[in-house]
């Protein structure tokens, strides 16, 4: 019997992958196993158990953070070969998205990145993923084994079998090029969980100065919304911390109300807001892409409309 080999540097993400792997296992005629690198705590083992792992391969000498993705890929590919893996399933974390393609190349096979859904067909594994900025979905078929896949997290719920997985020690000599980790600078964080926000007021390049964001902050305060932004505001301009960035490479949000102020709406941004219930956009340009992706497209100058809107809402809401 072949194996679906699961890896993530985050054991909780690995647990989610194990749930997905176990669903596919019968149709691929495979068993499932997780790979753990570096020291393993009781907590780690519990996480694997929660994903329903029966077997954990443990390689002690490799540390993802310290040695870098090439070494992780080497370990993952070596174990995959040793156990004749039919599939290597990696959680699509930032490290995972570096490790998975490198592993695929080492195994001379295909890779499907950041998939949202997987299914086994008689021809092979079928994977679904977002393309063309995330507004389209591609259906992919693997023509060669092993299938290397990274899967978005947050889609599977580990339930916890409770029973302790069997741990098998594997020793691997790492020869892949290593990185030297100099330091980790913790990001400035707003400490918000935009994915859970019900109301979001979001700002874009229509704001000319950092101080002008106070208009949006005031509005957000009045209606009890969180503040979000498009990529340039957090990235190039650094006016807001990265965890407020909404879009393809940032957060994907699903609020009841998404109020986009001065955001043009590049597809990379739109993919982050597609699950919003109501989208309202305020923009001077009636042809901006966001205007055709909104429930209400308000053609107007944010510098005039937003302060007036805040005043009106204060009256209506009695604040």
């Amino acid at each position: 019997m072949s194996t679906i080999l699961v890896y993530s540097e985050n054991p909780h993400a690995a647990a989610e992958m194990l749930v997905a792997a176990r669903q596919l296992a019968p149709s691929l005629n495979a068993s499932t196993a997780a790979l753990h690198l570096g020291s393993m705590s009781e907590q780690d083992l519990k996480a694997y158990a929660a994903g329903g792992a029966e077997l954990v391969y443990h390689v002690d000498g490799v540390d993802a953070e310290k040695h870098g993705p090439a070494c992780v890929a080497e370990a993952l590919a070596n174990v995959a070969r040793n156990v004749d893996a039919v599939m290597v399933l990696v959680a699509a974390t930032r490290l995972g998205r570096e490790v998975a393609p490198r592993t695929a190349q080492r195994l001379k096979t295909g890779y499907a990145a950041e998939c949202v859904q997987l299914e086994a067909s008689s021809d092979g594994l079928v994977a679904y993923r977002g393309v063309l900025g995330g507004t389209y979905q591609a259906k992919l078929l693997f023509k060669r084994k092993p299938y290397v896949v990274s899967l978005q997290t947050g889609r599977y719920q580990p339930e916890g079998s409770g029973s302790q997985p069997r741990v098998e020690k594997v020793s691997i000599e790492i020869t892949a090029p290593q990185l030297e980790l100099v330091e980790i600078a913790r990001a400035e964080s707003a400490g918000v969980d935009l994915e859970k926000a019900e109301l979001i007021v979001s700002v874009g390049r229509g704001f000319k100065k950092r101080e002008d964001l106070s208009m949006a902050e005031e509005l957000a305060k009045v209606i009890g919304a969180e503040l979000g932004c498009s990529r340039p505001i957090a990235g190039d301009l650094k006016w807001l911390p990265e965890d407020r960035h909404i879009g393809l490479s940032g957060k994907r949000v699903k609020p009841k109300l998404y109020l986009a102020l001065g955001i043009s709406g590049q597809v990379q941004h739109l993919v982050g807001i597609r699950d919003s219930k109501v989208v309202i956009a305020v923009n001077t340009d009636s042809n901006a892409p966001i205007m055709s992706e909104a429930d209400y497209a308000v053609v107007g100058d944010i510098y005039k409309v937003v302060p007036l809107l805040t005043e009106n809402l204060k009256k209506l809401l009695g604040r």
């Binding site: 890779y111 591609a138 259906k139 209400y296 497209a297 053609v299 107007g300 007036l308």
Partner: peptide
């Protein structure tokens, strides 16, 4: 090693109501 079988737009239905006018009216 991977073949694309199909690519399709993910449909999101929006009402697309346009509001135009003076800032006071819009607000």
């Amino acid at each position: 090693a991977v073949e694309t079988l199909q690519v399709k737009a993910l449909k999101v239905e929006r009402r697309r109501i346009t509001l135009e006018g003076e800032p006071e009216e819009l607000a």
